[in-house]
């Protein structure tokens, strides 16, 4: 398994209503050990996964939103959020978790992992992928 492939995880579902978001994140974390070229996309209701301020205490299930902040440590730092999906939901990037990573090629400078892209840009990014895992 020496070859490196471009993997993209496409998230299109909201958290908590169904388990897909959480189990998808588990795949991303496990997948990080395989040292592939990984990126994530948040589209449609998937953008709700990375909304700030999630608190699940009163529904009694695990709040997994802090886990997204760990993605940078797993070298998952290409996180694309579709602009049109945000706008359709009345959201901006300020409503989202502040996801950061340390760039080892730039003296470990802290950088934003989230990049808001238009659907046209995301379509091009999707075209470049070799494996698309959708959740």
């Amino acid at each position: 398994m020496s070859d490196i492939k471009k993997f993209m995880y496409v998230n299109r579902k909201a958290p908590y209503g169904t388990i897909y978001a959480w189990e998808s994140l588990e795949v991303v974390l496990i997948g990080a050990a395989f040292e592939q070229e990984v990126s994530m996309a948040f589209v449609d209701d998937g953008v709700y996964q990375i909304l700030k301020g999630q608190d699940t205490t009163e529904i009694g299930v695990k709040n997994f939103s802090p886990t997204y902040s760990a993605l940078g440590d797993y070298d998952v730092n290409k996180i694309y959020v579709e602009k049109e999906s945000l706008e359709e939901r009345g959201l901006t990037v300020d409503d989202l978790l502040d996801l950061k990573y340390e760039d080892e090629d730039d003296d470990w400078a802290e950088k934003d992992s989230i990049k808001v892209v238009t659907s046209k840009e995301l379509a091009e990014i999707l075209e470049q992928q070799e494996v698309v895992l959708s959740f």
Binding site: M1, F7, E26, V27, I30, G31, F34, Q36, L133
Partner: peptide
Amino acid sequence: SGLGQLIEAGIQ
């Protein structure tokens, strides 16, 4: 088996 089997399926 583990989730790694899915990633491996994607690679192989």
